[in-house]
Write a protein that binds this DNA or RNA. Structure first.
Lengths: 233, 233
DNA sequence: CCACTAAATGAATGTCATTCATTTAGGACG
DNA sequence: CGTCCTAAATGAATGACATTCATTTAGTGG
């Protein structure tokens, strides 16, 4: 993955345009990288319910209000987490594998990372790329892979957006309860649905969410693959 | 759409199994249908930010705590809204159109309904069908349509789940800001992505979210259609 | 050593969802 | 007709939170 320019590193300045730096302040206890790391650690330990500004501050040995010198809202902390997590999405196959396989590996990896962080999805899905440099770096790698594979320029973004939409929706599925399709007392009135659920269950093995993800992903890859100009890579 | 059995109509009883009805209580001011209607009205007027239990109670001329005699949490009100909204998803094409066209019309309608209610998506996506009778009714109609179209029984649920995942993810896109792909100062370091965004923009007309949705949906329909046994309808 | 500034503090604020002890009032039953 | 029983409504807490702000702290460049 191409290194992201570190917009993440500059301290937050409330609303001043270009405040002049005159005297250096005391050594900062806090910075965005430290906040991000602590936030991710906290989320892993306590989940998104336990992720409060107070708990984050405590884990940093700092007063809650101190965090607001660096970010302007809790949402901004979530954005920091999401951009950092994107580093863990594996785009390496775009450098080494044919397009189909590259898309496949990227999509599975992307889904797996965010299925453990579904509360971020409403944030990511509408976040301007300029606010998430590592995410932007991922898009760059993926776009380059699509172009090299002979994908028509003007459809690349639409295809990536469609794949991402499918990935985000599928990330939720992973966390759904096992009995989500049990119609209970209403089963009698839904024979077709109930039969379909039963015959799916008979298959047995393999995670239900994985089966659906695979089915949809392969359809998208096949459908989009047909758009490519016959070309190498 | 098949009528949903009205599990929605029975009053909420805290945890008693089968309390005996002895004396009828005073005429209830509140019931689940009324709460649902008021909640939806409130959401339409004030959005999900303005949707608080206090505001809901006020709109019903009732104390906030009174609502808790009928639902056990705010989340349950959201479930009521989501199930009611599902009534507005158009499944009629499954009775009148060929499978491809039916899926197309259903999917667009489904996306359109929930793109105006994205805060419900995290709730819907993991909600057991037994808790949402109208949603279950929708699944029944869709399942029946898939079966009639020659879809192999054991893949019907996976296909519907995959379509839904894509639909939910795409619903978020509809609400994304127009400049979501503007890389800003980082554009120079992301030439492939930036070029792809620019060439998409040149196309001009049509909503960006609609283009991506159409592209993905048609790929899914084509891919899934290939699974059907050659058959009528 | 002084002035300036970013960063940290700690004490509010205000907004919520949710709980609970009480009250209210209609119907069933004697 | 009066007395219970019960579901439903009330209104006053509670306890989490995120967020704000006036004030303090402590390097650093001049």
């Amino acid at each position: 993955m191409p290194a992201a320019t570190s917009a993440t590193a500059e301290p937050h300045r409330p609303d001043a345009k270009q405040r002049r730096r005159v005297g250096r302040p005391p050594a900062a206890v806090l910075d965005l990288d430290g906040i991000t790391a602590a936030a991710l650690r906290l989320v892993r330990k306590s989940g998104y319910d336990g992720f409060t500004m107070a708990a984050l501050a405590r884990s940093l040995n700092v007063a809650p209000s101190a965090i607001y010198n660096h970010v302007s809202s809790k949402r901004e902390v979530l954005v920091l987490i999401q951009d950092h997590l994107t580093s863990f999405v594996d785009v390496s196959a775009f450098e080494t594998e044919p397009w189909e396989q590259a898309v496949r590996e990227w999509a599975w990896s992307y889904r797996d990372v965010f299925s453990r962080h579904t509360p971020l999805i409403p944030v990511i899905a509408v976040l301007p790329v300029a606010d998430a440099p590592k995410t932007l770096a991922m898009y760059e790698t993926v776009s380059a892979g699509f172009r090299r594979a002979g994908f028509p320029q003007e459809r690349i973004i639409a295809a990536i957006v469609a794949l991402e939409s499918f990935i985000f929706g599928s990330a939720y599925d992973v966390t759904a309860p096992a009995d989500i399709f049990d119609a209970g007392t209403l089963a009698a009135s839904t024979p077709n649905f109930t039969a379909a659920v039963a015959s799916m269950g008979e298959q047995g093995y393999a995670n239900q969410a994985d089966v659906a993800f695979s089915l949809g992903l392969e359809a998208l890859i096949a459908g989009f693959g047909a758009l490519r100009a016959s070309s190498p890579a």
